[in-house]
Amino acid sequence: MDALKSAGRALIRSPSLAKQSWGGGGRHRKLPENWTDTRETLLEGMLFSLKYLGMTLVEQPKGEELSAAAIKRIVATAKASGKKLQKVTLKVSPRGIILTDNLTNQLIENVSIYRISYCTADKMHDKVFAYIAQSQHNQSLECHAFLCTKRKMAQAVTLTVAQAFKVAFEFWQVSKEEKEKRDKASQEGGDVLGARQDCTPPLKSLVATGNLLDLEETAKAPLSTVSANTTNMDEVPRPQALSGSSVVWELDDGLDEAFSRLAQSRTNPQVLDTGLTAQDMHYAQCLSPVDWDKPDSSGTEQDDLFSF
């Protein structure tokens, strides 16, 4: 819950932080000083300027060897085509990944977070970031790969997607708890209302004896509580940590079903599988986004697919 609360507080303090972009060759504004600060901008989305290598189908939802083989196929196909790589912007948030063309600003792909089953910074092609997700059109699994400016960037994108998945799962947990509370309150309110109706004398007997209905007592009954809980029953509950912020979080049926399955089948359902080692994760978390744009010590960066 700490990640969720800190993310909400950060967004309320400075929503404009989320509009910064990394990996864009110096076009961005001043960047936060450390990885923790940038992680807090996830709610509205972190932007990464990358190059799209392509996509291939895979048979399993996750796995280092599986993704490595898929990336190898994608890279080989991209090299064989001889075409310049498409420059894209990857927007990562707890909602998922939005992929747009840098030149036309046209939407290429919009992947809900619950469809993503794996992401990684490839070991062999260490400047490549990739994720595996279920197609929104059918049940097939797709591996999408992107060329980053350097290994640090690939690791940073991988960690960002993993963190977005974690925050999304926490949102789901909060929403589920809130819905259970509202359902319980609604049920209790309905029981109270039913009890009051059972003990209320029939209207005919009131008229016969000349008694008047006590409207004041009726007004004191917990009807307002019942209506408050039943009027918006169809509205999706939102985490309290975000009250007053500009973010509107809505959970669709697909996300609810997917996270429910994860909660039942996995020990740590909030953790998205990645190909990063503990050492890689520690190294990337210690980086400032400013470091992502620094040239690798191995030599001059080449803006070309064939540089790796």
Rank of each mutant, 00 (worst) to 15 (best):
E250H: 07
E178V: 12
L212P: 10
E109Y: 10
V248H: 06
G299W: 05
D304Y: 05
E217T: 14
T218I: 06
K152D: 12
L203T: 13
A263P: 03
E188T: 05
L193A: 04
H144M: 15
K184P: 14
L57S: 04
V236I: 12
L43T: 08
A221T: 10
W172E: 03
I108C: 06
M281I: 01
K5G: 11
L11V: 12
D234T: 07
A241M: 10
A185W: 08
E33W: 11
M46W: 04
A130L: 01
A241F: 10
Q285S: 13
S49F: 14
L159F: 15
V271Y: 12
A154E: 00
G275L: 02
V88E: 00
F129S: 04
V88M: 15
I97L: 12
T41G: 13
D280P: 08
G190R: 06
G26V: 09
S67P: 01
I74G: 01
E33M: 12
T209L: 05
S224V: 04
K91V: 07
N102F: 07
P237G: 07
W249P: 10
T218A: 11
K150I: 02
K62V: 10
D256E: 05
S205L: 06
Y118N: 03
E40M: 08
A80D: 11
W172D: 03
V271T: 07
I97C: 12
Q270S: 13
A195W: 02
E142L: 11
L159P: 00
A70Y: 02
S67L: 14
A278H: 10
D183C: 14
F306E: 01
D234A: 07
K127W: 00
Y118H: 05
Q136S: 14
P295G: 14
F129M: 07
P222N: 04
K51H: 01
I12M: 15
P295Q: 07
T100A: 08
V247T: 14
T274K: 01
V207K: 11
Q106E: 07
S297E: 10
K83N: 14
R261W: 08
N138K: 15
D122P: 00
F165C: 02
V207D: 03
L17C: 11
E33N: 13
A7T: 15
S288P: 15
A284C: 15
E178M: 15
L305G: 08
R39F: 11
F165P: 01
Q60K: 12
I132V: 04
A7Y: 13
F259T: 02
T100Q: 09
R115A: 04
V157F: 03
G254L: 08
P222Y: 15
K30Q: 12
E65F: 12
Q60V: 13
Q302H: 15
G26L: 08
E257L: 10
P32W: 13
L262Y: 02
T41W: 12
L272E: 03
E250Y: 04
A284Q: 10
I113D: 03
W22F: 15
A130P: 00
L212D: 13
G254M: 03
K184C: 08
A154G: 00
R95F: 05
L107S: 03
M124E: 01
P295E: 02
K176P: 04
A241L: 06
A263Q: 15
T56P: 02
Q163T: 15
V174S: 04
R196V: 05
D304R: 05
V236F: 11
G254T: 14
G299C: 08
W292K: 04
E178Y: 08
K152F: 03
L42C: 10
V161T: 12
L50K: 01
E217K: 08
E40R: 13
A185H: 06
S14Y: 04
A228P: 06
V174K: 01
L287M: 11
L213R: 15
A69D: 10
L262V: 04
L107T: 10
L85E: 01
A133P: 03
K87D: 04
R182C: 13
A156C: 11
K91R: 10
E109H: 02
P239G: 03
S49I: 11
S135T: 12
A185T: 12
G254R: 13
T160V: 11
L66V: 12
K51V: 01
E65P: 07
V157L: 14
V75A: 00
A121S: 09
H137C: 13
P15Q: 10
V192M: 03
E40D: 14
A18N: 11
L287Q: 10
A168P: 04
Q240F: 06
A208P: 04
E235M: 04
S307N: 13
F171C: 15
L43S: 14
V167G: 04
S260R: 14
Q60Y: 14
L43G: 08
E216Q: 07
L11A: 06
C286N: 10
A228V: 10
I108Y: 14
K91Y: 06
H144F: 11
G194R: 10
L4F: 11
K79V: 05
G190I: 08
Q302R: 08
L242S: 10
F146S: 00
D37N: 13
Q139W: 04
E216H: 12
S245K: 04
F48W: 10
H137I: 13
H125Y: 00
F306R: 01
Q60T: 13
K220R: 08
V192F: 06
I97Y: 01
L251A: 11
C286H: 11
V75E: 00
K220P: 11
L242Q: 08
R73H: 10
G54E: 00
L103P: 06
K72G: 15
A162H: 02
R151T: 01
H137A: 12
K123H: 07
Q163A: 12
S117G: 06
S93H: 06
G194N: 09
G54A: 00
G254I: 01
W292I: 04
K294F: 12
E142K: 03
Y118P: 01
S175C: 05
H282K: 15
T104C: 08
E216C: 03
K179D: 05
V88A: 05
L107W: 05
M46K: 08
R266H: 06
D191K: 02
Y52C: 12
V192C: 07
S175W: 08
